[in-house]
Design a protein around this nucleic acid. Structure first.
Length: 735
DNA sequence: TTTTACTTTTCAGGT
DNA sequence: AAAAGTAAAA
């Protein structure tokens, strides 16, 4: 077999251009993974590069695992597979080895979003920042974006920030960072930031890894942030053998700091970069490709490129306008069932995609009702569930006593008589004496920091921790986990409660036990700390792996990099896709379009898109109009269907007229409302429309809820940000 | 002082 | 609809 037989000329070029910086612009379904795999194999087999000298960075653990397996399959028996990893797990590996250089201890823990929020709140309290005026979440977001841009606390001058949340964030940031370090904890962003700092600081370590990873490969490059870019620069400093793969049309993570500009920047800053474009699509039908292309072409800021395919024309894309979310779910499930029975599309090759996690609910209800097999990917994460976090907090505290956040979490869970007042007293003592919470607890058992009652309870609790700590050192990870769940009284607490919910929690805990068991089996030298690491870095997509024969339900973000025979995208409505919060800003509006594009291009053969006339969300009814993205799709590519409005028979023609109206660029009103006789509640203050407020000035309606008298609109004002107003009361003028 | 019951808030996307 | 926060009861 020769490479030329298996690859097209462009792909071949991408595979054989091994030396120097290379940028591969790879459109959706253009055989990117294939090219990368062959590139690695080519390096090993034809260029005699040792697998150890190759590092490939992918976006998710799942992608990394697949890549590793694909390469491994084709290697000789005695060869080891190269390092394939995500940014975060790569950094974690390096830091576990070298972090002492930065003054952390090697047993550091990783704080997830919840833990981070607890730290921010504490910082705000200490720094006397009003949590009412400045939501901790938004400050945390600010801090995160500083880190994504590789801005250290000392790089930021509060003088240059004049007002509001950014200023407060600058003020809190140093305190936040200090507190994390005191807890011997890193947040997600720190994994990247500290690795860059490590490589900058130590010539020796940097040289070592430059020598070690002579060939670098980075996938999904359009979704890297500045810190990740710096990391790549540092790792490739010496040899410059970097191959990055990306597609500007699929950039969907700018909200967490990703920069499309890294693509342009790479070309500029890495000298002599070669650019190769992969534009032939091997995945989808011509029709699907045309529809997707039509949607994304509307974006103003994009490099022009056109995907083409030799695949069949295929069927038209079905667009179904449903009554509500229940009806939408019915339509989607029926279609998948039909495709399954008439066209032999397996459920496992079918996916239902949506913009927000909340949308899965109606879909799940209906699939369960029909007894169709399904699996929700992502959403509420397993390791973020209360009971799991609680037990893991016990483990974390034993491994890293400096972790006061986890300690505080379990202090009185299950309830053991150590209440709010006692904790507050101890925390004040800790702050004064600059001690950890664990030290504070020891103090409380000695002195008269708290009453004698709580002091005794605290002593018992500390004894429990000591006992568990001993077990951790002596016994196996599995026994230790088991003991923790029992000795802490956690299981007993749940069993005593004996509700449907608590029984579910017990089940989840036994699932945790299974997970640790499986981990210990597969990872030969896996410690409990390694397990915690993999648990915190697990990505949503990892769940796709072990599901067989089920319909996949997930968000449009999660579906990136996957493909299915049949795809249904729900909720193409202004307010949902594009999402309401993106409507006032052109950049994020374009990102919504790309998000839609990513979803559309997941489909190989069958594609359906749907929306509803109204849907219930967060406890109220929304009347979102059809998505503007639909307007870009040429009518002849669509097979239009709709659920007849059930109000009464004579309505159906009112409904049908929307197709004749479509050319008039304004999306049609939901027909059901036209015949209701009442006032058209969605006519005014339509999502996306501009209004004028006497005080706040011009704004854009981003969301509306309630009806008639109660109609409340959320409006985005340039000066004030988002405001929620009662439409009747606020003196709003439509523009 | 701690626990339970009630009220209020939030509601995009994820490593 | 669900989690987080607050006031009243034990």
């Amino acid at each position: 077999m020769s490479l030329a037989d298996e690859l097209n000329p462009r792909q071949l070029e991408a595979v054989t251009t091994t030396e120097g910086p290379l940028l591969i612009v790879a459109g959706a379904g253009s055989g990117k993974t294939r090219a990368i795999t062959y590139r690695i194999l080519h390096l090993i087999r034809d260029k005699q590069v040792s697998p150890e000298n190759i590092l490939a960075i992918t976006f998710t653990n799942k992608a990394a695992k697949e890549m590793r397996e694909r390469v491994f399959q084709r290697l000789e028996m005695n060869e080891t597979a190269p390092w394939v990893s995500t940014f975060h797990s790569l950094c974690l590996k390096l830091l576990r080895r070298h972090i002492s250089e930065l003054g952390y201890s090697n047993e550091f823990v990783i704080f997830d979003a919840q833990d981070q929020l607890a730290v921010v709140k504490k910082c705000m309290k200490e720094g006397q920042v009003n949590t009412e005026a400045f939501p901790p979440k938004s400050l945390l977001g600010q801090i995160s974006s500083f880190k994504n841009d590789f801005k250290m606390p000392e790089d930021l001058d509060p003088e240059t920030f004049s007002y509001g949340a950014p200023l407060k964030a600058v003020q809190i940031y140093p305190r936040y960072q200090k507190m994390l370090k005191e807890h011997n904890a890193l947040d997600f962003d720190d994994l990247l930031v500290l690795t860059v700092r490590l490589l900058r600081q130590s010539d020796q370590i940097r040289d070592y890894y430059n020598e070690r990873f002579k060939y670098l490969l980075v996938d999904e490059f359009q979704d890297t942030n500045l810190t990740q870019y710096r990391l790549i620069q540092l790792l490739s400093q010496r040899h410059q053998n970097v191959c990055v793969v990306g597609d500007d049309d699929q950039s969907i993570y700018s909200w967490r700091g990703a920069r499309i500009e890294n693509l342009l920047r790479f070309e500029r800053e890495f000298e002599g970069t070669r650019v190769i474009k992969l534009e032939q699509n091997y995945r989808s039908t011509q029709t699907i490709l045309k529809v997707a292309g039509a949607v994304v072409r509307e974006n103003e800021n994009r490099k022009d490129k056109t995907l083409w395919t030799e695949n069949a024309v295929g069927e038209r894309v079905i667009y179904h306008r449903a009554e509500d979310e229940v009806d939408e779910a019915r339509v989607a499930a029926e279609k998948l069932n039909q495709w399954n029975q008439e066209d032999g599309i397996s459920f496992n090759d079918s996916a239902i995609l949506y913009r927000t996690n909340a949308q899965s609910r109606a879909m799940e209800d209906h699939l369960r009702h029909l007894r169709l097999p399904y699996r929700v990917i992502g959403g509420q994460k397993f390791y973020e569930r209360k009971e799991i976090k609680d037990i893991l907090a016990y483990l974390k505290v034993i491994l890293n006593p400096a972790d006061s956040v986890s300690l505080k979490r379990i202090l009185n869970v299950p309830v053991r008589g150590i209440g709010k007042t006692s904790v507050e007293k101890i925390e004040i003592w800790c702050q004064v004496n600059n001690a950890t919470l664990a030290q504070g607890l020891r103090e409380a058992t000695q002195g008269n920091l708290v009453g004698s009652g709580p002091a005794r309870k605290i002593e018992q609790f500390l004894n429990l921790l000591d006992q568990l700590s001993r077990m951790c050192k002596e016994g196996s990870a599995l026994d230790f986990l088991q003991e923790t769940m029992e000795k802490s009284g956690y299981i007993a607490m749940l069993e005593k409660e004996n509700s449907i919910e608590s029984r579910g929690r017990v089940e989840n805990l036994s699932e945790l036990y299974n997970a640790v068991e499986a981990f210990v089996e597969t990872e030969r030298r896996g410690t409990l700390l390694d397990f915690l690491d993999s648990a915190t870095l697990a990505s949503d997509q990892d769940q796709v792996d072990d599901s067989r024969g089920v319909i996949h339900l997930m968000t449009l973000h999660t579906c990136k990099g996957l493909e299915f025979d049949a795809v249904i995208i729900l909720g193409l409505e202004n307010g949902l896709l594009p999402h309401s919060s993106s409507m006032s800003d052109n950049k994020s509006y374009e990102e919504e379009r790309r998000l839609c594009y990513v979803g559309l291009t997941r489909a190989r053969k069958k594609l359906m898109i749907t929306n509803t006339r109204h849907r219930r969300m967060h406890g109220s009814t929304f009347h979102y109009p059809p998505s503007d993205f639909l307007l870009a799709i040429p009518a002849e590519l669509l097979e239009k269907k709709m659920t007849e409005p059930q109000a009464s028979a004579y309505n159906q023609y009112g409904g049908r007229s929307q197709w004749q109206d479509r050319s008039s660029s304004q999306p049609a009103e939901p027909p059901a409302l036209k015949s209701s006789g009442g006032k058209q509640s969605s006519g005014e203050f339509a999502v996306g429309s501009r209004v004028l407020h006497p005080k706040f000035g011009q704004g854009v309606v981003v969301m509306k809820e309630g009806e008639e008298e109660d109609l409340r609109v959320t409006i985005f004002f340039k000066s004030e940000g988002k405001k929620k107003l009662v439409a009747r009361k606020a003196k709003l003028i439509m523009l």
